Simulated assay, not measured.
Amino acid sequence: MTWLYGWNEASEAFRELAQRHGDLERIPHGGEGPGGEPLTVDVALFGPSRAARCVIVSSGLHGVEGVAGSAIQRSWLSQLTGTSTRVVLIHILNPFGFAWQRRVDGDNIDLNRNFLLSGEKFDGAPPGWQDVEPWLVPQRQASRWDALLPKALYAAARKGRKAVFQAISGGQYESPRGLFFGGSGPATLQGLLREGLPRWTQGAREVLHLDIHTGLGTSGELQLLLPRREGTQEADALVRRFGPDARPALETVRHYRVQGGLGPWCEELLPDCDYTLCGAEFGTVSALEVIAALHQENRAWFWGRRDDARSVWARNRLAHAFAPTSPTWRRRVLDRGVHLIDQAMEPQ
């Protein structure tokens, strides 16, 4: 399976495969890619339209992370022969981020911090954000010499690693040019999913949603992050289905807790079905290397020129932090990702 970093190439390859087996929706997203191409969210639909059970597989919520998600979806599609389960493949949830080699959307929104629940406000920041922001988001062009790593290590030694990662990554709503910005209101994707999800899952009593990510954890290894606590009936059932990669109690395996994540919002949107979203995280590089790559790309985007050599370097560094070129890494992620979808499809 070819690993594709360009939005046009990846989307065309996905659509060609999807149309062999089922129905395809191309939903305008707004915005354009680097070549002026209009961006869409492509959704492939397979199996009975009103099946009691539905499996959703999505990728690219964090744009550049969709490189692996696209390869996994296309590889699974290439082996598809038929299904009695309703299957919904959402190819790239954040086409702007994928097309421009960013993690965020066109408004610099980290979409997995944007899905606030009823009563929550787009306001505030985690404790410690004001302390890390000056060195995390310096207002200057990217540079190969980077003081971020020693400053982050010093902050972690003083305040604790978990506290620093929480301050950086938990989701902030104060700095529109900062990292992990959750937005000042609902992003475009919210409206798209609010209309689409009830329609794609209509008639289903059970919906199992796999949202594919990269960047967190040991390189090449999968952590399937479950939304239910260890010992609950729901978590036990998911562990039996997926095996040792499944990790109950999300907060025990992350470095931080996220506000505005996609899963709880989907559950709130569809209260009449048993909706479960599991984050499928494939490790790449160290957490500090991920933060450093995000930091440099953000500097290049806001305070650099796109064709400057430092900006090109920062974009490539980010792309490879979330989708390494190692053949061994790619093979392991592809094999495990396809197997994960097959496991989700199996009746219990």
Results as ranks from 00 to 15, higher is better:
residue 103 R to V: 05
residue 82 G to S: 12
residue 68 A to P: 10
residue 72 I to F: 05
residue 96 F to W: 12
residue 76 W to K: 04
residue 76 W to Y: 13
residue 76 W to A: 09
residue 94 N to D: 05
residue 87 V to I: 15
residue 87 V to P: 02
residue 98 F to S: 01
residue 98 F to W: 01
residue 84 S to H: 14
residue 104 V to P: 10
residue 83 T to A: 06
residue 94 N to T: 04
residue 87 V to Q: 09
residue 94 N to I: 02
residue 95 P to W: 08
residue 102 R to E: 03
residue 90 I to G: 04
residue 93 L to P: 00
residue 101 Q to V: 14
residue 82 G to A: 12
residue 73 Q to D: 10
residue 70 S to M: 08
residue 92 I to K: 07
residue 84 S to K: 11
residue 75 S to V: 10
residue 97 G to P: 04
residue 93 L to D: 01
residue 92 I to F: 09
residue 100 W to G: 05
residue 82 G to D: 10
residue 100 W to P: 03
residue 83 T to L: 02
residue 86 R to W: 01
residue 86 R to T: 04
residue 95 P to V: 06
residue 72 I to H: 04
residue 84 S to F: 11
residue 101 Q to W: 14
residue 85 T to D: 07
residue 90 I to T: 07
residue 81 T to W: 13
residue 100 W to H: 11
residue 83 T to Q: 03
residue 106 G to E: 13
residue 83 T to K: 00
residue 84 S to A: 14
residue 94 N to G: 04
residue 94 N to R: 02
residue 77 L to T: 10
residue 68 A to D: 12
residue 99 A to P: 03
residue 81 T to I: 15
residue 84 S to V: 13
residue 71 A to N: 05
residue 74 R to N: 10
residue 68 A to E: 12
residue 84 S to E: 15
residue 90 I to Q: 02
residue 72 I to D: 04
residue 75 S to E: 14
residue 81 T to G: 15
residue 88 V to P: 00
residue 87 V to S: 05
residue 81 T to K: 15
residue 99 A to H: 04
